[in-house]
């Protein structure tokens, strides 16, 4: 039984191949402007890696904001369902899934049977998503990884407005002008974005255990900020950006 999950996100398209529910291949590609072509590229690439051909595939499930581009899919589910399925299959004790991608953050609460009770998605402003942290890292002239680990070095609490990305950005500029150490700025940004996310988590309510998925989970500073805010340990899967694709692959049809 071969099933493939394709998560066509705003920035990356992720694909994963399961053989009898075990991961045999995975890969990602920038979504870019040629989304549809790239969907096919990554689909072929992971099949190559798994040593299979289209004829061997029993099921392809698409998810993500660009899931309609995967026109050869046999099944299609929304991000919410895929994220919950993926996270709960990896960690059956999880009741709250926080998924932060490039342009959207969401929080999902599930019951003991893995059924979704409630979820929230961030509203228009992008301050609560990965793309914003990335642009802030660029403003500080460092990589996202550096940004994350540098932020761990700060103990300072600099209040920063997380309601509006534009306001927050101008606050960063002000801090730079005021010669604030970069570590403190990085922490302030992570705290601000985290607070935007936890605000959403509180909106749907949260229960242990909590998993964080999506590319932003690689930002260790951000994870620390979330943990401090929620006063709880967060589970991070080994490949956080692939969890939704994995969940999709499990939803066979």
């Amino acid at each position: 039984m071969i099933s493939i999950g394709i998560d066509a996100g705003a920035k990356f398209i992720k694909a994963i191949v399961l053989k009898d529910e075990k991961i045999v291949a995975k890969g990602q590609i920038l979504a870019g402007f040629e989304g549809k072509e790239n969907v096919e590229k990554i689909y072929n690439r992971v099949m190559n890696e798994a040593g299979i051909s289209p004829g061997d595939v029993n099921s392809v499930t698409s998810t993500g904001s660009g899931r309609k581009m995967v026109d050869f899919a046999t099944n299609s589910v929304t991000d919410v369902t895929a994220a919950a399925k993926g996270a709960l299959s990896l960690f059956p004790g999880v009741r709250t899934v926080i998924d932060v991608g490039a342009e959207e953050g969401r929080s999902i609460r599930c019951d003991n049977n893995g059924k979704i009770i409630d979820y929230a998605v961030n509203e228009k402003c992008a301050a609560g998503a990965g793309a914003f942290t990335e642009s802030m890292a660029r403003a500080l002239e460092m990589s996202l990884e550096e940004f994350g680990s540098l932020s761990l070095k700060s103990e300072k609490e600099i209040p920063m407005n997380a309601q509006c990305a534009v306001f927050a950005e101008s606050e960063v500029v002000s801090l730079l002008h005021a010669k604030t150490p970069k570590a403190d700025i990085a922490k302030a940004v992570n705290d601000a974005v985290a607070s935007r996310i936890t605000s959403m988590v509180r909106k749907v309510g949260f229960e242990k255990e909590i998993a964080l998925i999506g590319g932003v989970a690689y930002n260790v500073g951000f994870v620390k900020s979330i943990e401090t805010d929620l006063k709880d340990k967060i589970i991070i899967p080994e490949y956080p950006e692939y969890v939704s694709a994995y969940g999709a692959a499990l939803l066979i049809k």
Binding site: E123, P159, A162, Q163, D191, A192, S195, R196, S199, K203
Partner: peptide, 13 residues
């Protein structure tokens, strides 16, 4: 005048 994350559930942004 401190950022907070407790009102989102109660007052629309």
């Amino acid at each position: 005048h401190e950022p907070q994350d407790v009102t989102e559930a109660h007052i629309f942004g």
